Computed example of a mutant assay.
Amino acid sequence: MAALLEYLPLILFFAVYKFVDIYWATGVLIIASIIQLGFYYLQSGHIATRHWVFFVIALVLGGMTVLFQNEHFIMWKATVIYALLALSLLISRYIFNKNLVEKTLLGLLNTVNEKENGRGSQLEITIPESICEQLNMMWMVFLAFISVLNLYVAYNFSLDTWVNFKVFGLMGITFLAILATMVRIYKYLPDEK
């Protein structure tokens, strides 16, 4: 259910684009994002910062797309989001001396452990700092690459190709990066009991 909610605006964007056009799809994306924020708030009593940031980007660039009837604004959305994520990893690592990939990864692993073994269960996992540094760098480069690749596809291919790339290509490439991360840390995960 959570995964469906996370991707609902994107799914609706794709469906409306295929049946109507990019401007209606962009409007639906904005409305679905508002509904998504409302659901997150009702579910947990707060809305995570990343959801606010993604919504504001969708609202501003989507609003400009609809207002000016120019699809190039919405095409920039993925580039802005991926560039901000890459910049966040860079700044947090080299200015604040924090590895956000390590923090996120261990947080996810602990959440999985709690769901499988009950609350209070602590996952005994240590990933060498050098591996975490490599992963942080890999994700910085990956996110920067994706932000540039999105613009390349947007300006060198048809609107249909870009929409398909945004929905399926970006998701597929991100899945491969997650898979590479899991392969890299697999030997450091504890054995199943």
Rank of each mutant, 00 (worst) to 15 (best):
F68I: 00
Y152R: 01
N156M: 03
L61G: 11
G120A: 06
K115W: 12
N150S: 10
E6H: 10
V80P: 04
T65C: 03
A86N: 02
F19T: 15
E102H: 12
W24V: 08
L159T: 07
Q43P: 00
Y94C: 03
N164T: 04
W139F: 05
I74W: 04
N150M: 02
A83Q: 07
G172S: 14
L123N: 14
V66S: 11
F39I: 15
L135E: 08
L59R: 04
L87E: 04
L12C: 07
L12F: 10
P190I: 05
F165A: 01
T111Q: 04
A78N: 12
I22D: 11
H72T: 10
I127Q: 07
V16Y: 14
F13Q: 02
A180V: 10
L84Q: 09
F168A: 08
M64R: 01
L170A: 08
A144G: 12
L108E: 04
V153D: 02
Y82A: 14
G63M: 09
Q69C: 00
E133W: 04
T104G: 11
I11Y: 05
I131C: 12
L87M: 11
L42G: 15
L170W: 00
F157M: 12
L89A: 01
T126S: 13
A86D: 06
M140C: 12
Y7K: 02
I31Q: 03
L159Q: 11
A177H: 05
Y17G: 03
S158M: 05
N70R: 06
Y41K: 10
T79Y: 01
M75S: 10
Q36G: 02
K98F: 01
H46G: 14
K18L: 13
A177T: 04
L149G: 01
G169I: 02
I74H: 00
V167K: 05
R93Y: 08
M140K: 09
A177V: 05
I35E: 05
Q69K: 14
A180H: 02
E124P: 00
T79H: 02
L29F: 12
Y155I: 06
Y23L: 03
G62S: 06
